[in-house]
Structures are given as structure tokens and as C-alpha cells.
């Protein structure tokens, strides 16, 4: 029995409206990754996470739960869950992740921030004002919820005096760079992915990785935003010899991630297909999106190693964290 579209999207819209997030994860989970990094508050240039990396452990937990519902057919509770969620945030019950999972994703954000610092890029962070972009609501056609949220985010950014945003995932990059300007009058921030920023700087080299791997382009970076060269340039500079899969660059094949919420089984099928295509080229797979990373990792067999590009860059250019 499929996951009910109406109740699930209703909960998403309600969360965005009431709690300014698709999956409200709490303050500690959202900004805990910054511990000890001395990132200044605010400034004209800020690292904007849109909470994507921080949300993935919760998305993983929820996807697992929804897949069980989908199989068991006990989806009649969804209407009830939606009405309760308006009053009490049900997300922590629906999407409970473990501290180890959260640490794995927080570490990617830490590495990204440390790489930017190592490259000499000056940036601040908005901490509790670093809000979700509303990407899922936009994709699912919840236009009123999305527009209201986008205007709210715009107000927060303007009030903080921000001029430039450095994003860390393709979805937030696309929302802020290409979608917000069409929906929010006056939205005039410069938006660049950290991969684009890093590719223009020189990173200190600690060791050349001297290994081969394959790359999985995110649909959004490749076909929506045209971010194809920066990850390749950065990996080449880290000593990674890339073997391109047959479907690569503008022809990349989706990881299945967008269907995690409403159609978990189909999502897994697509991810399995994509892992097969990548495995045919190399057992080492590099992603550049938290959702691709999560979805392909879940579908990968033990002999396929899926890692984010920031893992490779950190290994090549940063000292290990104590």
C-alpha cells in the first residue's frame, strides 16, 4: 500500500509553516557541527547549509519507517498523525536517528568549513538562522507554503546583512540561486556552491591520494546548475584518477533520492540500478550531495565504498581532527 500523498505532504507543509523546516530537528542537531571551529556569527559572506546535511540522518530514519508502513499497509494512521503534528512536533518520533549517524554527517560539514578556512576563504555562519530552503515543498508543488517560507528566509538574510552565500549541497544551491529570485522580489544574493569556491582557490596539499574512483553527478548540480567541472578539478588536484560511468555529467542517472518519502521501494530500486552502473566502473564511488550519498549508500553492497567528495578533499588537504 503506498504512502498516502495527501497526509504526508500536508505534514511537510504544516512543518514548514509552523516550524520553518520540513523536518524540524532541533537547535542542537542543526548547529552542533560548528563546535570548536570558531566560525564568526553573520557577516557579508556566510556558509549556508540550509540544514540539508543535518537533516539526512532524520530523513534516513524516516525513510526506513515509511518503507515499513508501505510494506505493512498500516498507512491509515497517517491522517491522524498529520492532525497531531499540527499541535505537537511528531518529527522526533517519526525520524529518530542515532548519535553515530548524526556525527558522520556533521563531520562532512566540519570538513567543508575547514577546507574553506584552509583555502583562505573568509566566511561567517548564521547559526540558528541558517534555515532550510524549502526545496522539498517546492518540488512537491506546495507553492503557497514554499513562497511564504522563501519570503521568510529572505527577511532573515536581509536582516543579518548577508550579501553572499556559500552553499554546501546542490538542492540549496539551486533553490537560492535559481528558484528564490523568481519567487521573492528583490532576492539578489550571490550564491555559489563551496565546490565552485574551492575550485578557484589553492588548497594546501598534505598528501596525494593516488587512487582511482568513479563519480556520481547529482542531477541538480549537473542538469539544473551546470556544476560539473569544479568537483573534477578538485579531485584531480587531490590525486584521484576519475573513471567516468557511462551515464555521467549532463547525462547522469538519478540516485532515486527524491522518491524516498512518498515511494520508498521505487527509490531503492533506482538507487540499486545506479549503484550497478557505477560499480561497473569502480568500487569507489564519489558523490557531491547528501541525499545521493545517503540513498546510494543504502543500496550499495559491502564491496562498494560510497563517500562524499568532501571526505576525499579532507583526506588530501586537511590534518586529521583530534
Amino acid at each position: 500500500m503506498p504512502v498516502p500523498i495527501q497526509s504526508t505532504l500536508g505534514m511537510l507543509g504544516d512543518n514548514l509553516k509552523k516550524r520553518h523546516s520540513a523536518l524540524p530537528i532541533g537547535r542542537k542537531a542543526a548547529i552542533g557541527w560548528t563546535r570548536g571551529l570558531d566560525i564568526p556569527r553573520g557577516g557579508e559572506t556566510v556558509l549556508y547549509t540550509g540544514q540539508m546535511w543535518q537533516m539526512v540522518p532524520a530523513i534516513n530514519a524516516m525513510a526506513g519507517r515509511l518503507a515499513k508502513y508501505e510494506k505493512s499497509g498500516s498507512t491509515r494512521l497517517f491522517g491522524f498523525a498529520r492532525s497531531m503534528n499540527k499541535l505537537v512536533n511528531l518529527t522526533p518520533f517519526l525520524a529518530r536517528s542515532t548519535p553515530a549517524e548524526r556525527k558522520a554527517f556533521d563531520d562532512r560539514l566540519r570538513n567543508i568549513a575547514r577546507l574553506l578556512q584552509a583555502a583562505g576563504v573568509k566566511f561567517g555562519y548564521l547559526y540558528e538562522k541558517d534555515l532550510y530552503s524549502g526545496a522539498l515543498a517546492y518540488d512537491e508543488g506546495l507553492d503557497e507554503n514554499f513562497s511564504a517560507h522563501a519570503r521568510y528566509v529572505y527577511g532573515v538574510l536581509k536582516e543579518a546583512g548577508v550579501k553572499r552565500l556559500i552553499t554546501v549541497d546542490p538542492h540549496t544551491t539551486n533553490m537560492l540561486r535559481s528558484v528564490y529570485p523568481k519567487h521573492v522580489p528583490g532576492f539578489d544574493f550571490e550564491v555559489r556552491s563551496y565546490l565552485e569556491v574551492l575550485a578557484e582557490h589553492t588548497l594546501p596539499t598534505r598528501k596525494s591520494l593516488d587512487r582511482s574512483a568513479t563519480i556520481h553527478d547529482s542531477c541538480v548540480y549537473a542538469r539544473y546548475e551546470g556544476v560539473l567541472e569544479p568537483p573534477r578539478k578538485l579531485l584531480a588536484g587531490s590525486g584521484v584518477a576519475l573513471a567516468e560511468p557511462e551515464l555521467s555529467g549532463k547525462l547522469t542517472f538519478c540516485c532515486g533520492g527524491p522518491l524516498e518519502t512518498l515511494f520508498p521501494s521505487k527509490s531503492h530500486e533506482i538507487a540499486t540500478k545506479r549503484v550497478e552502473q557505477l560499480k561497473a566502473v569502480s568500487p569507489k564511488v564519489i558523490t557531491a550531495c547528501p541525499l545521493c550519498l545517503a540513498n546510494l549508500s543504502r543500496a550499495a553492497p559491502a564491496d562498494v565504498d560510497v563517500k562524499d567528495i568532501s571526505d576525499y578533499l579532507a583526506e588530501a588537504h586537511l590534518p586529521a581532527e583530534a
Binding site: C219, Y224, K250, L251, G256, P258, L259, L262, F263, I270
Partner: peptide
């Protein structure tokens, strides 16, 4: 309609 990935493979 809700199962489309919006991956733009077709569109490109």
C-alpha cells in the same frame, strides 16, 4: 505525477 524524480534526464 508524484513519482517523477524531477531529474530532468528527459528535459535535457
Amino acid at each position: 505525477i508524484f513519482s517523477c524524480l524531477l531529474c530532468r534526464m528527459c528535459e535535457s
